[in-house]
Nucleic acid binder design. Structure first.
Lengths: 163, 163
DNA sequence: CGCAATTACTTGACATGTCAATGATATAGG
DNA sequence: CCTATATCATTGACATGTCAAGTAATTGCG
């Protein structure tokens, strides 16, 4: 005995509900994986996710990045990058070098020790992620990636409008 | 001229890569939407996402929740809930009531003012989310929700193993 | 009953994160 | 050239977040 098709208003309302529920689930899943990653990084390497993230950005650009560029790539504010860089520099994992093209700016880059430390961590980090996403098949991952790309683009366009 | 099918090792390696890329995209998308939500909450209501989140939990349980339960539902540690509750209480939006069943515990609940304030914010918050997820169709949202559910369950089972 | 182990919450130390203000340097226009 | 404006990085104030230690009350077991 099939239920009658919901009218437009009901459908719209339940779509709205679907959006909220999906968003809450995204938040929860993200927090779960992030918390796990933080915990593992702390336990195995005594480091943190933002520090790992910063090093990952630098690893791709041996010449170094300006604080500025780090801030954009990590999607955090500049003041924050200053603090994390300070910490990593104190541990000898990154170093600030004068930018020859702009005396206001630094180039931040991995030290040899930083490069070694990151290589070790990155291998294990990749295992954790692959393990977590083992729940999904290739096709599902590809569908999700597509949805997320559309979401990202769309939200960015919203930002442009009311910024 | 079709490329030859990749052998098992190549396929595995590119699956791994797919997992990492997907995870990075989840992180980026999440941060984008979260940052937007934070900004809007700040601009329109001078409040923050964690405060909104706590009030949202309380709104569903008029009798109030123990700090304990708030902490579990919000997926954050207890010390954190203490601070956020302190702030909201100072603004008169929530109140701590003695738990009649356990003298160690509080029941935290919305004040009438808190209930009114939340109702106003929630309406607008829902609009923001629906607007953001307008990029996706019903079917896509349902597929994503399913994937996320599987991811969540799987990661939780991993947690159980090495906790 | 009585004591040991748990549980509920708070606190303080620290790591991220935001924002707004500041100082130093670049850059552009007159 | 010189000044107005913009950009780069740091700082300090504050809001979240974690964790571990401390206090108080409950629970469970002998």
């Amino acid at each position: 005995m099939p239920r009658p098709a919901p009218d437009a208003e009901t459908r719209a309302a339940s779509d709205d509900h679907a959006a909220i529920r999906l968003w809450l689930r995204m938040l929860a899943t993200n927090r779960l994986i992030e918390t796990r990653t933080r915990r593992l990084l702390q336990e195995r390497y005594g480091t943190t996710l933002p520090r790992f993230d910063l090093m990952a950005q630098l690893e791709r650009v041996p010449a170094g990045l300006k604080m500025n560029e780090l801030s954009k790539r990590m999607m955090v504010t500049g003041g924050n990058v200053t603090g994390i860089t300070d910490g990593l520099a104190q541990e000898g994992l990154v170093e600030r070098v004068d930018d020859p093209d702009d005396r206001r700016a630094w180039l931040v880059r991995l030290t040899p020790a930083g490069r070694r430390a990151f290589a070790r961590m990155a291998r294990e980090h990749e295992r954790w992620v692959v393990e977590a996403f083992g729940a999904l098949g290739v096709r599902e991952m590809s569908v999700m990636a597509g949805c997320l790309a559309r979401l990202k683009t769309h939200v960015r366009s919203l930002e442009g409008r009311d910024a």
